[in-house]
Amino acid sequence: MHKEIMIAGYGGQGVLFAGQILAYTAMDIKMQVTWIPSYGPEMRGGTANCTVVISDQEIGSPQVAEPPIAILLNLPSYDKYEPLIKVGGVAVVNASMVDRGAIRTDIRTIFVEASRIAEEIGDTKLMNMVAVGALLAVLPELDIKEVKNALRLHLPSRHHALLPSNYLALERGFDAAVSQGHG
């Protein structure tokens, strides 16, 4: 098992945390995992991305030239990374912040109204968890139950009041992907 996932958006969209929760989940199910952020002087308000590599053997490169899996949370990220996704790969795109369709026909693109769904749940900050939920529909190696577990185990207890809405965001994203025939 070897999965390489890139998550990109703008600073403040929860890009890094979305990657971390996948990393925590992988760790909890005893997989090897590496999470690496982009870091630079341009980070605040600019683009942010991170790469998560999950494997059952010692992980080599922490970064990938052509990510087979990507979560793209805004238009600049979609424009930048859509061309790089590996042929046959999958992109989860936050349709709420993207005003175009897919250009690539050799990858699978899952458009999810992540921001709108998060707003319906009552907190736009849950957008990242909606997108992660949508990804889980096509990433059976990480069970949504395990991701919920990871949230509960690794979120500091002062944030535990937010767990139910995070769970709901994951489920709504998952269902949105499944209802489009993915997963």
Partner: peptide, 10 residues
């Protein structure tokens, strides 16, 4: 280096 310093791993 910056990569090993900034990355998170179990």
């Amino acid at each position: 280096d910056g990569s090993v310093g900034q990355m998170m791993e179990p």
